[in-house]
Design a protein around this nucleic acid. Structure first.
Lengths: 339, 339
DNA sequence: TTGTAGGCGTTATCAT
DNA sequence: ATGATAACGCCTACAA
């Protein structure tokens, strides 16, 4: 296994020698800043091709002070939701010559801070923070050094571009749909209260009830943490406490999956006995059994918009931080309640 | 938005000046290679802390020729299966001071090649390829320059550490379980034939049938591509063609989800009418409706083992490429067929 | 248009 | 133990 690998990479100096020119000239055709005589250019390009020379971004970074790398603080590299956003970022950044550097904050303020430090140490040219629990202050501090875009919160500060979906409206959307389907006893499974938009969704739920003239019943609100198990537990509690309900609105799809399983365990069918609505519209929701009605958060587009905004900041133009409105994807987990 | 950001980062030179020593000495306490007098050490450490100095990995890379970065060629940054592996990699690499650099090959040979080129250009210290469609030759070529570990295939070559689960055994495991549960008409939904281990799983299926003395019926084998839709389509075809079956073994969980939906659409219940087994045991399978019986591939552990192997190669020791055997996780999607 | 020289922020090799 | 000094590979004035 102790293999002697290929020697040092081809350098610009070798190219210059092969083409019979100076390194500066090579550098010029590489960067394309200044005109170079046709004859030398072809000679250099030939040498580059023959030697299979690739300029070192490391050296380039050191010389220019830019790394062509954007740091992305995601919460978990295996998150189904942020995975899509990462993909959107990737798809926008790569064509622009930038490379995303993904690090995971794990919904932990301290870890997220370390992520940002690590990214700054790596000399990234900008930072995109996908939600997380960082304080606004920490982000403002980050923006003092680097162009910063953050999703999942509203924040106006110099050097920061924040973008957020309207989770309140999303909460209303789902609840209103259930109300219009004839449901009156709608349980709500809340998300992790420590996460930014969790309570917004609940506020939307309550607002929709109020608008429909339905009294808010706190017994119908179950705590949750955005994971499947908490959705299942919520159903258990509801049933055990003999609290009547004909529909459930879970603050995210994962909890809805858990709730579906909980209902199944109790012999309750979806949607025949209970209608179920989630939030996020994860890719898997399309193939859940039954396919889940959910408030769609276009995560891929979120990533794209975030990346474009970063590119704009980098090029000195004013970033556009506008996100599309949330929509409801109706599938088979909900049904009209016949009066 | 045109904010004037903080000026250039603190350099070692500034630390040296502040501590009244030379840059070399600062470098020494940083790298900890050579002894430094106690008095100077504290002075330097004090200066580092006060100036909040962080050494530049970029400059360090240039000087040392190592970037402390490992390139990871994953197939999709949002893949549920490889997401777990990436997490395992991350969790092993970070404590060792290395940072993973994730790029996506999208199951496309050309893209994967570009990924490797991009990683080499970024001067990563090693490459981990998560499966993919690269030719063995391409990997051997890669290994000429960088320590390379690859998952999902068996390959013995200098400088390469390959690791793979025993998909044949996995296929047998699932099929044997169904056979032992009394099933005789077991349909198989195949995976993408272009992916390395796809046919291995099918071979295991056939071998198990043979071992049980059951004639292999090609009508029971449906083509698939590892995506949900193809699982659903397979069920459609099976039912439409009036091919009798009491169980389905899908070559991965995603197709099993699709199959479950297809069965549901046809009014067939799982597991009452049809038992269903998947392959991978994705996190979501635990909360599928019903929870899915599946051949468990410990993806997180795979990532860990791959990362450890890389670390071992980097440190010059012989890497261990052994993976745990595949196991079967039995859940509610399968039932004993009463004879 | 082209080449020379200096700098980017570290580490490593020398002397001392 | 410490301090100059030369790499590391590239970019960019500056000069020609």
């Amino acid at each position: 296994m102790s293999l002697s690998r290929e020697s040092a990479p081809v350098t610009m100096e070798m190219v210059a020698k092969a083409a019979g020119v100076s390194m500066s000239t090579v550098s010029r055709v590489l960067t394309g800043t200044v005109a170079v005589s046709e004859t030398k250019r072809v000679a250099i390009e030939k040498a580059i091709a023959e030697l299979r020379f690739v300029p070192s971004p490391v050296a380039r970074s050191l010389a220019k002070g830019r790394s062509m790398t954007i740091g992305i603080v995601t919460q978990a590299i295996d998150s189904p939701f942020y995975g899509l956003a990462m993909r959107g970022i990737e798809d926008e950044l790569n064509p622009a010559g930038y490379m995303p550097l993904f690090v995971s904050g794990h919904w932990n303020v301290k870890t997220e801070c370390q992520c940002i430090d690590a990214l700054r140490a790596r000399r990234v040219d900008g930072v995109i923070v996908l939600t997380g629990r960082l304080t606004d202050q920490a982000l403002i501090e980050c923006a003092r050094f680097l162009p910063t875009v953050v999703t999942g919160r509203n924040l106006t500060a110099p050097g920061i571009c924040a973008m957020n979906f309207d989770h309140f409206s999303g909460g209303m959307l789902a609840t209103r749909f259930l109300l219009e389907s004839g449901h009156r006893r709608i349980a709500f499974i809340a998300g992790d209260p420590d996460q930014p938009n969790s309570s917004e969704r609940q506020r939307g739920y309550q607002a929709a009830l109020e608008a429909a003239g339905i009294a808010f019943d706190p017994d119908l609100v179950m705590p949750g943490d955005f994971h499947e198990a908490s959705g299942m537990l919520a159903v258990d509690r509801l049933v055990t406490a003999h609290i009547p309900f004909t529909a459930i609105f879970a603050a995210n799809d994962q909890m809805a999956y858990g709730a579906a399983l909980g209902l199944r365990r109790r012999g309750l069918r979806v949607p025949d006995d209970v209608s179920l609505v989630g939030f996020d519209d994860l890719p898997g929701s399309q193939y859940a059994a039954p396919p889940l009605t959910s408030v769609r958060q276009p995560a891929y587009e979120l990533g794209q918009v975030a990346a474009v905004a970063m590119l704009q900041m980098l090029s000195g133009t004013i970033p556009t931080c506008d996100l599309p409105p949330l929509t409801l994807t109706t599938r088979e987990s909900t049904r009209r309640l016949l009066g």
